[in-house]
């Protein structure tokens, strides 16, 4: 540790960081690993190859991916509107964005289910016009996860858009670019890394989301049963080892996916000279 730092405190702050990380994150997660070690590899394999387990993994990850993708798109548009245009009630609207952060997720789930169920306000209209049922179907899970994930995207994209130098757009226009070319070649590359971060956050949150989903999903095994629910089910049957096995697998997959998104971000930043 070189002594040339202006601010003292490298040792205590690093110590605190490691202690905190160990206490809150690493120790509980390694407990998960140890618990699942009670199982032999065969037992572990049996649990994971179980058709119902596999179906729930598919439901969880596919719906989280779709929801994060849609949230990224919508969140981008909302952030754009909030940053670029003045309109009445903007501050109120801006405050509303954060509501899903604060709302108990179960409340969100119940409200969403009530509105989107086949007899609900919106659910009925969609049912009548398109013949599509939202609540109590996998589609309902996607709806709930969009609701949960949206603020993550808006809040990560917004500051980057605010900082974006609009003179770059004027420069592009003065060089003969039309608006579409300016958007695709100038704005998008500068905002993409932040949008990817928002996507990753929304996705990570979506995979682990429990409260809002179980009320709207219908929770049909093989169809709309998410992994967290399956873990709870196993726990209720005192199958602790089984629950930890599923939990550990979920952890590993989530970690790999987030790593992938980070790598993608790094690649985008590097390609656009931001590293």
């Amino acid at each position: 540790m070189p002594q040339s730092h202006i601010m003292p405190g490298f040792r205590p702050t690093l110590g605190f960081t490691l202690f905190y990380l160990a206490l809150i994150v690493l120790i509980p997660l390694s407990a998960l690993v140890f618990k699942s070690m009670q199982l032999s590899l065969d037992q572990y394999g049996d649990i994971l190859t179980n058709a119902r387990v596999q179906a729930s993994f598919r439901v969880s990850f596919v719906s989280a991916l779709i929801a994060a993708g849609i949230a990224a798109l919508f969140g981008f548009i909302i952030a754009w509107t909030l940053v670029r245009y003045p309109f009445p009630g903007k501050r109120l609207f801006d405050a509303l964005i954060d509501l899903p952060f604060a709302l108990p997720t179960a409340v969100a789930g119940i409200v969403l289910a009530a509105i989107y169920e086949p007899n609900g306000w919106i659910g009925r209209i969609v049912m009548d016009t398109l013949g599509v049922q939202i609540a109590y179907k996998p589609l309902g899970i996607v709806f709930a996860l969009i609701f949960i994930g949206l603020p993550f995207v808006v809040r990560t994209v917004e500051p980057v858009l605010q900082e974006f130098d609009t003179a770059m757009e004027e420069a592009a226009a003065s060089l003969g670019a039309n608006r579409l070319q300016t958007f695709i070649r100038i704005i998008l590359p500068n905002i993409l890394p932040a949008t990817l971060t928002g996507f990753a956050l929304a996705f990570a949150r979506g995979v682990g989301e429990y409260g809002s989903v179980i009320f709207i999903a219908g929770n049909m095994p093989y169809v709309s049963e998410i992994v967290p629910l399956l873990i709870i089910t196993k726990l209720e049957q005192y199958d602790y080892a089984g629950a930890t096995a599923i939990g550990l697998t979920m952890l590993v997959i989530s970690f790999l996916l987030l790593l992938l998104v980070n790598a993608l971000q790094w690649w985008v930043r590097r390609r656009s000279g931001q590293l």
């Binding site: 130098d165 003179a167 770059m168 004027e170 420069a171 592009a172 003065s174 060089l175 003969g176 670019a177 039309n178 070319q181 070649r185 100038i186 590359p189 500068n190 390609r271 656009s272 000279g273 931001q274």
Partner: peptide, 25 residues
């Protein structure tokens, strides 16, 4: 041709791509 006070170079593009931009669009 407009030269901006703070240059407004496209920061995600190389110098070459910056200059080529007007031709490529």
């Amino acid at each position: 041709g407009f030269v901006f006070q703070h240059y407004a170079l496209f920061r995600h593009m190389t110098v070459f791509d910056n200059i080529a931009f007007g031709l490529r669009v």
